[in-house]
């Protein structure tokens, strides 16, 4: 119990710090967005007073109050799930935009990470069992190279060839707006058609790292005594491979899953932009270029929250799978 509570406290602290960080970044840095926005409104012909009221209404925080009161107000708003109103999409609450965008990002990332993890484990184990054969060398070389390629560079190349030159996949968007959403084959296949290139970009650039890690883990498990004992006892090769080796080699990889999820959220900012895939990452950069700070703040916080949650789930999963976490001397 103790470590779960400890984890929860760490994660909540992290979230609190992320919230505070964004607040002070937006309010107190030189050339801070609030002043910039007030100036923008003033250039549009408003008076200083009007502009401040305008900005205050976007954030739903009164900026004439002292900073610490603004901060308290801001915390209260966040707790209530109120992230303010977008500046670019005039009048639309940030929370609503996020509720449209988040499912797409989650869809993209969960499919990519699952495929990548599963494929990595299978290929990694395969390479480990065929250690020092041609197949192993090929897989290892492929993994090392793809692992080194930045995901957005690969995405650009895919976009260029598959969408622009050969026109096999759509260049942009999450779905064809002409097809009505619903549980129809047409809609679902259209969604996957749009998601293929982004998913491939993620998959190919992340699978190598899982393969290499799984290969290493399997080789070290294979060298351990109890595997030799199991073999000596005449357990069938397949059974050893999956129930003993597989299990023990995968467990350490779970800790890295949480870190990988964090990296993928970072990567999604770039990938979503390249494919104009309207998820959180897309809106994050869009809001930054458009200087829509309420939206930017919302996107950043929701990304942090998502990473915190996936960290927590990975922790639980790991604690559940690995008895050593619980019974430690």
């Amino acid at each position: 119990m103790r470590w779960i509570v400890k984890r929860i406290i760490t994660l909540l602290t992290t979230f609190y710090i992320a919230i505070t960080l964004t607040f002070f970044l937006i309010r107190l840095m030189p050339g801070n967005p609030i002043d910039v926005m007030i100036n923008q409104y003033m250039q549009q012909g408003m008076s200083m007073e009007q502009a401040r009221i305008m900005v205050s209404s976007l954030y739903q925080i009164d900026f004439s109050k002292p900073v610490w009161e603004q901060y308290i107000e801001y915390l209260q708003l966040i707790i209530r799930g109120n992230l303010g109103v977008s500046y670019i999409y005039t009048g639309v609450p940030v929370a609503r935009i996020i509720s449209y965008a988040l499912p797409w990002t989650v869809f993209l990332l969960s499919i990519s990470i699952t495929l990548s993890f599963v494929l990595g484990i299978i290929l990694g184990m395969f390479a480990a069992y065929r250690r020092n054969t041609k197949a192993d060398h090929t897989i290892t070389l492929f993994s090392t190279i793809t692992n080194a390629i930045p995901n957005y560079v690969l995405a650009l190349i895919f976009l260029f060839f598959f969408a622009c030159v050969w026109k096999i996949f759509p260049m942009r968007g999450t779905r064809d707006p002409r097809i009505p959403p619903g549980f129809t084959l047409e809609f679902i296949s259209n969604v996957f058609h749009h998601a293929t290139l982004p998913i491939l970009s993620f998959l190919i650039t992340t699978v190598g790292s899982w393969i290499l890690q799984m290969r290493g883990a399997t080789i070290s498990v294979l060298g351990e005594d109890y595997i030799k004992v199991a073999e000596a006892r005449g357990l069938k090769g397949k059974r050893i491979m999956f129930s003993y080796v597989g299990r023990n080699a995968i467990i350490p990889l779970f800790t890295r899953l949480a870190i990988a999820i964090g990296y993928m959220f970072s990567g999604s900012v770039l990938i979503e932009n390249i494919f104009t895939y309207t998820g959180i990452g897309y809106y994050l950069t869009y809001s930054v270029t458009a200087r829509d700070y309420p939206l930017m703040q919302g996107c950043f916080l929701i990304t942090t929250l998502a990473i915190i949650l996936s960290n927590f789930i990975a922790d639980l999963l790991y604690g559940f799978l690995d008895p050593r976490v619980r019974i430690e001397r």
Partner: peptide, 19 residues
Amino acid sequence: DIVLTIPGFPLLIVIASVL
């Protein structure tokens, strides 16, 4: 631990855009 959890690239974007 906290820095590890905060999404790196998004934070980068936010800071770069402000600075």
